[in-house]
C-alpha cells in the first residue's frame, strides 16, 4: 500500500507537481504573455480546433462502424472488428510516416487527390487526417459494448407500437447511446489534442499555419526556453483535466440513466 503510493508519487505526482512549480517562477503577466503570444495562440487554436473537427468525424464514422459491426453480418466482419484497434497498437511514429507517404503528392492517395486540386500532406488537412486516424478506436470501443447490451425487446416494443424503423433508431436506440457516444468523442478529442508522433510528419510544421501545440513545446525546449514550454504545457494539462472530469461525469450519468440489469 505505502509502496504503491511511494512509487506513484515518484513516477507521476512529483513530475507533475514539478511542472506546476516551474510555472510559479513566472509572474502572471509573463505567463499570460507567453500563452497569448501569436504563435502560441495559433498553435493552441490549430491543436484544439482540428482535434474537435477530427473527433466530430470520428463520432459519425465511429457510429457507422459500430452499427455495421454489431448489427450486421458480412464477410470479414471479425477482421474489421480487430483492425479497429490498429491505431492504438501502431507506434505513432510509424503511423506518422505511413500517413505522410500515403498522402504525399506522389502517394497512393495523395496523387489522385492532387489531381482534384486537394493537397493533404504538409497542410492543416494532413493534421486533420492524422487526428482522425488516431481517434478511430475511441468512439467504436466505447459505444460497441453499450449497443451490444441494448435490449432488442425495446426495439420490438417500439415497432409493435407502430414506430417506423427510422423512428425506432433515432428516438429509441440513439438516445440510449448518447453518453457512450459523448465519452468516445471526448476521449478521441483528448487524444488528438496531445498527439505528437503521428501528426508531426504530415503536418508541414509551419509556424502559425500547421504547427501543433505539442510541437511548439518541443521547439521551445530545444531553444532552452523552458518557461515558454512549461506555460504551454500547463494550458494543455488543464484542458485534459477538464476533459477527464467531463468523461467521469458522463460515465456517472450513463450509469444512472440505464440501470444495470
Amino acid at each position: 500500500m505505502g509502496l504503491t503510493l511511494t512509487w506513484l508519487s515518484v513516477i507521476i505526482l512529483i513530475p507533475l507537481a514539478g511542472l506546476f512549480l516551474k510555472t510559479l517562477d513566472l509572474s502572471f503577466e509573463q505567463f499570460w504573455g507567453i500563452v497569448t503570444s501569436r504563435r502560441t495562440l495559433n498553435a493552441l487554436k490549430i491543436s484544439f480546433g482540428l482535434s474537435f473537427a477530427a473527433a466530430c468525424v470520428n463520432l459519425v464514422m465511429g457510429m457507422i462502424v459500430v452499427w455495421a459491426l454489431v448489427r450486421y453480418r458480412f464477410p470479414g466482419r471479425r477482421l474489421f472488428d480487430a483492425i479497429v484497434d490498429i491505431p492504438f497498437a501502431l507506434p505513432t511514429a510509424v503511423a506518422g510516416i505511413a500517413l505522410t507517404q500515403l498522402f504525399a503528392q506522389k502517394g497512393w492517395l495523395g496523387a489522385p487527390l492532387a489531381e482534384l486540386g486537394i493537397k493533404v500532406a504538409f497542410t492543416p488537412t494532413g493534421i486533420f487526417i492524422a487526428m482522425i486516424f488516431i481517434g478511430i478506436p475511441f468512439v467504436v470501443r466505447t459505444v460497441q459494448p453499450v449497443l451490444l447490451d441494448l435490449d432488442v425487446e425495446i426495439e420490438e416494443a417500439a415497432a409493435s407500437l407502430g414506430a417506423s424503423r427510422w423512428h425506432t433508431v433515432f428516438r429509441v436506440i440513439l438516445p440510449s447511446l448518447i453518453p457512450a457516444l459523448l465519452t468516445g468523442f471526448a476521449l478521441a478529442f483528448a487524444r488528438a489534442v496531445g498527439e505528437y508522433g503521428s501528426v508531426i510528419f504530415i503536418a508541414g510544421n509551419l509556424p502559425n499555419v500547421s504547427e501543433i501545440a505539442p510541437l511548439l513545446i518541443v521547439i521551445r525546449l530545444s531553444e532552452f526556453r523552458y518557461a515558454d514550454a512549461t506555460a504551454i504545457a500547463v494550458v494543455m494539462l488543464i484542458a485534459s483535466f477538464i476533459i477527464i472530469f467531463a468523461v467521469n461525469r458522463l460515465q456517472r450519468w450513463a450509469q444512472t440513466r440505464i440501470p444495470a440489469h
Binding site: 496531445g194 505528437y196 518541443v218
Partner: peptide, 9 residues
C-alpha cells in the same frame, strides 16, 4: 490523458 510531449517535459 497527458500529451506524450508533456510526459517527457
Amino acid at each position: 490523458s497527458v500529451s506524450p510531449v508533456i510526459s517527457g517535459l
